[in-house]
Simulated scan of single mutants.
Amino acid sequence: MNKKILYVEDDSTLAFLTADNLEQTYDVCHFTNGKEAFDAFTKDDFDLCVLDVMLPEMDGFELAAAIRERDVEVPIIFLSAKTLKEDRIKGLRLGADDYLVKPYSMEELVLKIEVFLQRSQKNGSQKTSVYTLGDYTFDAVNYTIERNGSSTQLTEREAALLQLFIENKNTILKREKILTSIWGTDDYFMGRSMDVFISRLRKIFKNDERINIENIPRVGFKLVAPD
């Protein structure tokens, strides 16, 4: 059975070209406004979401936030003509997995879709993996981290990044290794994305001074934590 993709784009020409390409491999449900797309998301199961940012009724950022409230696992890719760094960072902070700027390469879009779908399938087939980190308990399959009865829900990307750090605890990880392991590429923008996710993880551990994700200048990062 083909994977099902929620595709939201109000530019009819671009939507036709993109959907036509994607439909060769996937089941594509195309919508032209955010509200209709979210209504569909609440009634059906999708394997991945491809969202334009500038949409009528509910823009892409609002749509992504609403999707994340219901599902923290489904991969989200933004497609947008908005090129400002702040817009990209905003999309990633909302829990998006990637942000492609228009005009984008269809080959690149399909490649990224495949990477995220394969990662989701791999994570879905994993046995339960629970890690202890200081006073925290991290469930790598359900993307949750708990401390003193309080639970925080992570996104899939945050969970993958934290799991990589834990499995290499007290060891320096080069930026290139982190990027290729989690993002599949080590380009500049993905490096900026990684910094955002690391900052979010640091906030989770801010109340335990024994745990810190140290920045190793010009090299990478190291998760410092008790054994």
Rank of each mutant, 00 (worst) to 15 (best):
K3V: 09
I5Q: 02
Y7A: 00
V8K: 10
D10M: 06
D11T: 12
D11P: 02
T13G: 01
L14A: 13
A15H: 09
L17K: 01
T18S: 01
T18G: 01
D20S: 14
D20A: 06
N21K: 09
E23H: 07
E23K: 14
Q24A: 07
Y26Q: 01
Y26V: 00
T32K: 02
N33F: 10
N33I: 08
K35W: 01
E36G: 03
A37R: 00
A37P: 05
D39M: 12
T42W: 05
K43T: 14
D44V: 06
D47T: 02
V53S: 01
M54T: 13
E57C: 07
M58S: 06
M58C: 05
D59A: 13
E62N: 05
L63I: 02
L63R: 08
R68T: 04
E69A: 04
R70L: 12
V74G: 02
P75N: 05
P75I: 06
F78Y: 12
K82N: 02
L84N: 12
L84W: 04
K85G: 05
R88S: 03
I89P: 03
K90P: 05
K90Y: 03
G91L: 07
L92M: 11
L92H: 01
R93G: 04
D97K: 01
V101S: 02
P103N: 11
Y104D: 04
S105K: 11
E107L: 14
E108L: 15
E108M: 11
E108H: 13
E108Q: 14
L109H: 08
I113W: 08
I113Y: 00
V115M: 11
V115C: 01
L117C: 10
K122V: 12
K122Q: 14
G124D: 11
T128Q: 10
T128D: 00
S129F: 04
G134V: 10
Y136M: 10
T137S: 09
F138Q: 04
D139R: 04
V141H: 12
Y143C: 04
T144R: 07
T144V: 12
E146H: 11
E146F: 08
G149V: 11
S151M: 15
T152N: 11
T152A: 08
Q153D: 14
Q153F: 13
T155G: 09
E156D: 14
R157Y: 00
R157N: 07
A159F: 02
A160K: 07
L162H: 01
Q163A: 14
Q163W: 00
L164W: 03
E167G: 09
N170T: 06
L173G: 01
K174W: 15
R175H: 10
L179E: 00
I182Y: 07
D186F: 03
Y188G: 13
R192H: 15
M194S: 01
V196R: 07
F197T: 05
I198E: 06
I198F: 02
L201G: 10
L201R: 10
K203N: 13
K203I: 03
I204M: 02
I204S: 03
K206V: 15
E209A: 14
R210E: 13
I213P: 00
I216A: 11
P217Y: 12
P217F: 14
R218G: 04
G220R: 02
F221H: 10
K222Y: 06
V224K: 12
V224F: 03
P226C: 07
